[in-house]
Amino acid sequence: MAGEPQADCLFCKIVTGEVPATVVRETATTVAFRDINPQAPTHILVIPKAHYADAASLASAEPTLAADVLREAGEVAAEEKIDGSGFRVVFNTGAGAGQTVFHAHAHVLGGRGLQWPPG
């Protein structure tokens, strides 16, 4: 069921502490942690504690929780001091877009020039 923890989900296991992560922020509804394969000097994932497969299903089911994730992305950028130089927030949706963990998550990237279009 959407929103419920999934036993086979890596990010659900990070939420419960079953899998370690370098957590940089945590709220009642979100967890932010450093990406293990960073694509920029600052690369942090912000996830909802509730399980939704992707950003679209999260936003459809719980728009307030989706807003929490976006707000935390901004807070992470400020704490990492990349808010002034610019940062990118990316949601990959589906395997064809590069999503590898099917638990909604935002990538917060910064600390270097980020050209457009990406990839």
Rank of each mutant, 00 (worst) to 15 (best):
27 T>M: 12
28 A>Q: 10
29 T>F: 02
29 T>E: 07
31 V>G: 02
34 R>Y: 02
35 D>M: 10
36 I>M: 10
36 I>C: 07
37 N>Q: 14
37 N>P: 00
38 P>M: 00
40 A>H: 11
41 P>N: 03
41 P>I: 05
42 T>E: 07
44 I>E: 01
44 I>M: 01
44 I>G: 01
44 I>K: 04
45 L>S: 00
46 V>R: 00
47 I>S: 04
47 I>D: 06
47 I>P: 00
48 P>G: 13
48 P>V: 13
49 K>M: 08
49 K>I: 03
51 H>M: 09
52 Y>S: 00
52 Y>E: 09
53 A>M: 12
53 A>D: 09
54 D>C: 07
54 D>T: 06
55 A>Y: 15
55 A>E: 09
56 A>N: 13
56 A>H: 13
57 S>M: 04
57 S>Q: 12
57 S>H: 05
57 S>K: 03
57 S>A: 12
58 L>Q: 02
59 A>L: 13
61 A>N: 15
61 A>V: 06
62 E>C: 07
62 E>G: 00
64 T>L: 12
65 L>Y: 03
65 L>W: 02
65 L>T: 01
66 A>Y: 09
67 A>T: 11
67 A>H: 09
68 D>S: 15
68 D>C: 14
68 D>F: 12
71 R>V: 15
71 R>P: 01
72 E>N: 09
73 A>Q: 05
73 A>L: 05
74 G>M: 06
75 E>Y: 05
76 V>K: 08
77 A>Y: 03
77 A>E: 03
79 E>I: 05
79 E>K: 13
79 E>A: 08
79 E>H: 03
79 E>M: 08
79 E>R: 08
80 E>K: 12
80 E>P: 12
81 K>H: 06
81 K>S: 14
82 I>G: 02
82 I>C: 04
85 S>Y: 00
86 G>S: 07
86 G>L: 02
86 G>M: 11
87 F>S: 04
87 F>I: 11
88 R>A: 14
88 R>C: 13
88 R>L: 14
89 V>P: 02
90 V>L: 15
90 V>D: 10
90 V>N: 12
90 V>G: 10
91 F>T: 04
91 F>Y: 10
92 N>W: 11
92 N>D: 15
92 N>Q: 06
94 G>S: 12
94 G>K: 11
94 G>D: 07
95 A>S: 15
95 A>D: 14
95 A>P: 12
96 G>D: 15
97 A>W: 01
98 G>Q: 11
101 V>G: 08
